[in-house]
Amino acid sequence: ARLLHGSIFAKVIEGLRELVNEATWECSGNGITLQAMDSSHVALVSLVMRSEGFESYRCDRNMSLGISLVSMSKVLKTMGKDDSLTIRVNDDSDSIIIAMESQNQDKFADYELRLMDLDSEHLGIPDTDYSCAIKMPSSEFSRICRDMSIMGDSVLICTTKEGVKFSAKGDLGQGSIRLVQTTNIEKEEEAVIIEMKEAVALTFAVRYLSMFCKAAPLSPQVGLSLSEDTPLMCEFKIAEMGHVRFYLAPKIED
């Protein structure tokens, strides 16, 4: 699998590696997918990178590759900003080859990472018709998670027709941030758009939402999909290629 802009792949890994330290990559002719849960099984990430999004892509037989995302992140940090990236696994090999090329083809770096044997549980996530679908700038969402974490461990997300409200409370007191739906969309990337069938009010652990925001550099916009008594879906699109979707179980009153 070859990417002209290897930085896309580095951003994907950076977006996942805090939530899941290691994961099984499923490779087929259609592309690369991954599904993994965090160690407490409260959050899940689902990654899709379609073959047509790569500069070139070939997969002669389906493979499951157990990879340490922490190690891969370290290797990818050695990559130059404009480097291209090729990922290769040879038949019957116990390692993955990560090759980087500088833009003017004067530097070539190769790394081999040992593959791991991982037990992975795969959950079936049905297509869900969510009550609310919110789109907002991903930088804004990151900022809100950071700001709400000052006040508490949990953030309550409430939607109305007018907008969406995030609030948190704790020992210090409480705080809230309300975003109003953008009425005059000039730049789509900066818009806050709320599609609502029913109002929702759901509480989530802000620590996990903050981890999801590590994937924010992938996309200028984030999508949040919510329904009562259903895990939140937080989506960052990978341009022309696929997406990273995070799922998080809501907090409930005991």
Partner: peptide
């Protein structure tokens, strides 16, 4: 007290 659910309550294993 707030309790965090596991995803298995919502989604089943494939």
């Amino acid at each position: 007290k707030r309790h965090q659910n596991q995803l298995r309550l919502y989604y089943s294993s494939d």
